[in-house]
Design a protein around this nucleic acid. Structure first.
Lengths: 149, 149
DNA sequence: CATCATAGTATGGTATTTTATGGTTGTCAA
DNA sequence: TTGACAACCATAAAATACCATACTATGATG
């Protein structure tokens, strides 16, 4: 199953936030009932995925030379930064404060589905980003706009 | 299985609408008993497909590369905008209000088959669109008829 | 041929469950 | 002892399951 859609949920005083029901469903066949969160490397947001995917990623890095620069980067940047957060009985997680700060999130968290992964944004930041992306997508794909001739 | 034909069904006060029986049959071999809806990027209508197709799309664009900007494209826009809606026992779905508004749909929904995907239109909008398309096709007719193969 | 029976479909209304959210208590460790 | 954190309890609103009815097409039967 995939992470689809965009849902905004409140973060309470203790940092608790409900993971959207559909997102939880996307992990229901996994061993680990929770999600993995880490800094995005390309945007001002938090990225997330399933434990299953993390394991796949780990398998992929196994193929690299142990001392290669790439492996060093992956290990230090991804695995050391990733946190596993399990759902409580009502489906909530507590997002670590440094991640919230990095993404500029305070009261509300915007969960954005991206298929195999998802992101958590400050709403204003996301809308800014999305606007840019839309423009880029249309520029790069003129074939989508009206095909005359 | 393909989405074929054009069927008009009523939307009730809660946004519920019967997905045409033939369309439901087109998903009967899938794991997920429902459809994925998202707003069209080219027309004033809702677009839909199966979860299976979404997963294929996800597999095609998923390269496990966390540093790539390449995923900032139309596909990611689709994933963040897509809603998974499962059929109830009588074969209905609830179309989210914002999608209905985007497509200008109020009381009735026109399901239009497009093979691997389908669209949901306001009937008037669709007829307008269809008229324009016919005129365009007629204008371009000479170039069409000279194209061999 | 007219009528009846049947099965699948569309549609409307109500009841139940799930979800998101807030608060309280208990526990362990610094 | 205090502060962090997990487990537990509560509730309103939203989503969904459930039930009932009407309609359609089709086929069987007298």
């Amino acid at each position: 199953m995939l992470f689809l859609g965009t849902i905004e949920n409140k973060i309470d005083a203790k940092g608790r936030v409900s993971v959207p029901s559909d997102f939880r469903m996307a992990t229901k066949n996994d061993d680990f009932q929770g999600v993995i969160l880490y800094h995005s490397f390309t945007h001002k947001c938090i990225e997330g995925c399933t434990m299953e995917r993390m394991e796949k990623l780990s398998d992929a890095t196994d193929n690299l030379d142990l001392f290669s620069e790439e492996n060093e980067n992956l290990n230090s940047l991804i695995f050391s930064d990733a946190r596993q957060l399990s759902f409580d009985v009502t489906g909530r997680i507590v997002i670590p404060a440094d991640l919230l700060e990095f993404a500029g999130i305070n009261g509300n968290a915007l969960f954005v589905g991206r298929g195999k992964t998802f992101q958590i944004w400050n709403k204003d930041e996301f809308e800014k980003y999305q606007k840019e992306t839309r423009e880029k997508a249309f520029k790069n794909r003129p074939s989508l706009s009206f095909k005359k001739d």
